[in-house]
């Protein structure tokens, strides 16, 4: 009875999430496959732009930036690797879900390598701030998302980052 009262059959799956971006899917199809591409079609209505498209790009960029800082921090302070590796794995998993949301891999942002404080404790604090900011941004994105499925994805990602931050506090310092 408890299981019935705590449903785990969430109604929105990954495939459904793909379908929440019809504007993007249509746009890609018309660019890559449509032999009429490039012709003037004044009467053809433009596919509606997905209202979450900009948010998706922003989340991809934020996730990539957080992953880059994790990698740079581990590179600069290898002793932090065991405590921080899970963040890298988390961002990779999230990136895969974001690519799935758009039904294709998203471009990786080309940014300057993040700077890492030379003192280990400061580097760890900077990473903690970065992850906290990411979690806040994801929660904010979830709140503003037009698509319920996209909102759910962002909310779950935010919760995952918060979990990892708490786990980081519990891991033994090197």
């Amino acid at each position: 009875m408890c299981r019935a009262a705590l449903p785990s059959d969430v109604p929105v799956g990954r495939r459904a999430l793909v379908l929440t971006f019809p504007g993007l899917a249509l746009a890609l199809t018309s660019c890559d496959l449509d032999p009429r591409a490039g012709r003037a079609e004044p009467d053809a209505p433009a596919p509606p732009e997905d209202p979450d498209l900009d948010a998706l790009g922003a989340v991809v960029d934020a996730t990539d930036a957080a992953a880059a800082l994790v990698a740079a921090t581990i590179s600069a302070h290898p002793a932090l690797g065991p405590r921080l590796a899970a963040f890298g794995e988390l961002h990779t998993a999230h990136r895969g879900a974001l690519d799935g949301a758009a039904d294709r891999p998203q471009d990786t942002a080309t940014t300057t390598p993040p700077s890492v404080p030379p003192v280990r404790a400061q580097a760890l604090a900077a990473l903690r701030r970065s992850e906290s900011a990411l979690a806040t941004a994801l929660a904010g994105g979830a709140l503003r998302a037009d698509s319920g499925a996209f909102a759910r994805l962002l909310a779950v990602m935010s919760a995952a980052v918060q979990q990892e931050l708490l786990a980081l506090d519990r891991r033994v310092a090197p």
Binding site: L17, A155, A159, A160, Q163
Partner: peptide
């Protein structure tokens, strides 16, 4: 709902849970 989800996810660690990539929606993962 977002606040409650985050709280439930974090609370799992107090009872022996481990961090997950998609707490509350594991089917979103590979």
């Amino acid at each position: 709902a977002i606040t409650a989800l985050t709280d439930a996810a974090v609370r799992q660690l107090a009872f022996g849970g481990v961090p997950q990539a998609f707490p509350g929606a594991p089917e979103l993962g590979p």
